[in-house]
């Protein structure tokens, strides 16, 4: 490094518990934790598929377990962070693809917002329609 390094300096300090020091940081750390909770949701779905493969009795057992107060509490613990995650992910994700990739022109922010949230609404409707039996 340059000549200035001969001057004694005070090392930059790590603020203790920096993530609690600012509202935006706290919000970001919540987002990071919500990211982890996605996998908890995936695990529950994995158990569901496993029950499904074992037959109708195992499936009924799984539904009874998830329908119990503890099961419903688990669903709140999964769904609230997952929805929070989905909205922030799709919102901040809009910034990334606004770049020219090869011959394709860079998509605009407005178009990406519509695409991201359109996809969320479209896929959700499709899942609900298919699984509820409205569309066979």
């Amino acid at each position: 490094m340059g000549s200035a390094s001969s001057t004694p300096t005070l090392a930059s300090r790590v603020p203790d518990g920096w993530w609690m020091s600012h509202k935006r940081y706290r919000y970001y750390m919540l987002f990071a934790m919500a990211s982890g909770i996605l996998s908890l949701g995936s695990l529950v779905l994995l158990v569901a598929v496993s029950a499904l493969s074992k037959g109708s009795q195992a499936w009924a057992g799984f539904l009874a377990m998830l329908g119990s107060p503890a099961g419903l509490l688990l669903s709140v613990v999964v769904l609230v962070p997952t929805c929070f995650f989905a909205v922030r992910w799709l919102r901040v994700g809009v910034k990334i693809p606004q770049v020219k990739l090869g011959p394709m022109p860079a998509p605009g922010a407005g178009m990406l917002y519509v695409a991201h949230f359109g996809l969320l609404i479209g896929v959700s409707l499709l899942v609900i329609l298919l699984l509820s039996g409205v569309v066979a």
Binding site: M1, G2, A4, S5, T7, T9, L10, A11, S12, R13, P15
Partner: peptide
């Protein structure tokens, strides 16, 4: 933050 301090409010930008 995240820079060494040379003096008071002046940081090392090397």
């Amino acid at each position: 933050a995240n820079f060494p301090v040379v003096r008071d409010l002046v940081v090392e930008l090397e």
